[in-house]
Simulated scan of single mutants.
Amino acid sequence: MSKKMDIRWHGRAGQGAVTAAKTLAELISQEEGIYAQGFAVYGAEKRGAPVVAFTRVNDKPIRDHSEYMEPDIVLILDPTLMGLIDVKEGLKKDGKVIVNTAFDKEEVIKELGLEGYEVYVVDANKISIETLGRAIPNTPMIGALAKVTGLFSKEEVSKGVVELLEEAGKFPEKIIEGNRKAIETAYEEVK
């Protein structure tokens, strides 16, 4: 794993962008000598309002808690945000973009002006509806991110998230199993 990585998550309140940023940080920080933080910057958002969350990874303690970053990776959890946000804002020249969409990669590249960037698509809404019964794209996007970055194998990421959900002690087995399936399916289907 790279010793330093900045990730920006764009979604809408209620889709789990903040939870995904924090969950990823928790998974990554379990590796010895790696520090991670997951946080969001928002006010009293109502369900459906745009939200931005962040995950920082470093081999040194992270003292920067600002929202400014030059991300290596940008994830878009809500396809309706395409065109409403500047996905490329601060994105490194060799940056990666992962979009939750049913559109194909070429359409997304053209729509967002992402020529020259690595762009990946996965239909995380469809996956979450099939595995969890509703469109909560955060865990499928973690699965897609794991595959795109090579941070975790499919087994490592699904096992890690399942363990975190079990430790929380508030999710029924059906939800935990649905999240496992969502992660593994997105890991396989991201293109």
Rank of each mutant, 00 (worst) to 15 (best):
K3T: 12
D6T: 04
I7N: 10
R8T: 14
W9S: 04
A13N: 07
Q15F: 10
A17S: 15
V18W: 03
V18Q: 11
T19W: 06
A20W: 08
A21W: 04
L27V: 13
I28E: 03
I28K: 00
I28N: 02
E32H: 00
I34R: 11
A36F: 01
A36V: 13
G38C: 05
G38Y: 01
V41Q: 15
G43L: 10
A44I: 12
K46N: 08
P50K: 13
V52M: 11
R56D: 05
P61D: 10
P61S: 05
D64I: 07
S66M: 07
Y68F: 15
E70Q: 15
I73D: 09
I73L: 14
L81Y: 12
M82D: 08
G83K: 11
I85G: 01
D86F: 07
T101D: 00
D104V: 10
K105S: 04
E107I: 13
E107K: 14
V108C: 09
E111F: 14
E111C: 12
L112M: 15
G113C: 14
L114I: 05
L114S: 07
V119T: 07
V119K: 03
I127R: 04
E130G: 01
E130D: 13
L132P: 00
G133Q: 05
R134A: 08
T139A: 11
P140F: 01
G143S: 10
T149M: 09
L151V: 02
S153P: 08
K154C: 11
K154F: 05
E155S: 15
E155P: 03
E156D: 07
E156K: 09
G160W: 01
V161N: 00
V161R: 06
E163C: 08
L165C: 06
G169N: 02
K170W: 00
K170R: 10
P172K: 13
K174E: 14
I176D: 09
I176W: 02
I176L: 06
E177R: 15
E177W: 00
E177Q: 11
K181M: 07
I183T: 04
E184V: 06
T185D: 04
T185A: 06
A186S: 12
E188Q: 13
E188T: 15
E189A: 09
V190W: 13
K191I: 15
